[in-house]
Amino acid sequence: MSTELELERPAQPPSFQGISTGRKAKNLAATVMVSLCFVVAVIPLVWVLWTVASRGMESLLRADWWSHSLSGVRANEDLGGAYHAIYGTIAQGLVTAVIAVPIGILVGIYLVEYGAGTRFARVTTFTVDILTGVPSIVAALFVYSVWISIFGFSRSAFANCLALLLLMIPMVVRSTEEMLRVVPNELREASYALGIPKWKTIVKVVIPTALSGIVTGVMLGVARIMGETAPALILMAYSARINMDIFEGSMANLPLLMVKEFTNPEAAGFNRTWGAALTLILIIMLFNLAATLVSRLSAVKTK
């Protein structure tokens, strides 16, 4: 070995064992490909949002859009608005949430606080996973076969809510579960140490700590189900008129309005379809934004 030689040799720049050009090229190629993938995903997003915004803006700028229904408006008239559908979308979203939230939270509590590790909890977790994957059309058919075929109720917005319920419950369970798991055990133990029974500990200590996370999850869930269309196609009848009653008669929501109007060949139909699309996106974004705000604000509070 020529150590002496190496020591005396003046320093030369290629003192490091270089990496082959092949490896460098591969590394560069990977970097380019991976970045391209991201760009590829952004293209349709921007394209879709641009399409919706540019085509839907016209309708949204008419004041009537927010305050009137399409009752009595002819197919070719750029009159009336989406009030009936906006009301329907929000009302159905809220009714669904009101039922889904307690059930979902209770299941989440069971999984984290009571069932942890038991066989039944594992079955429940698996079921929630499967429920997450149930296609909305299957949920709709299930509600159809029970609520309408067997119980003999007629199609209504409430039937739609029942199907949306099936889609929303697993989302609430998931976010509850996740948030409850984050609550430190010391909090629970501190409460037990004061002699407070378990259920009271959960209600007074655990849930409030996890609440903001749960609320965030619920809002994201509501945003998701408000865009659902398939159940409405099967379980509701569209009405161009304002109907405030969830349980009786035909009712609209934004997706259903779009389905009705996209076959309308008039310019007004085009405007209504894309106007409804833009409105729907705005409402969903509003809920998403609110969810982010809730999580941000309360995150600061805990510190």
């Binding site: 059930i103 209770l106 299941v107 509590i109 069971y110 999984l111 606080e113 009571y114 069932g115 039944f120 909890a121 079955v123 429940t124 079921t127 929630v128 499967i130 429920l131 149930v134 299957v138 949920a139 299930f142 029970v146 099936l166 419950i169 697993p170 369970v173 378990k198 259920w199």
Partner: peptide
């Protein structure tokens, strides 16, 4: 506890019911 357990059962029953 019963309520929470019941809700869990409800979800399991739901999938079977579907």
């Amino acid at each position: 506890r019963g309520l929470a357990l019941g809700s869990g059962g409800f979800v399991v029953a739901l999938i079977a019911a579907i």
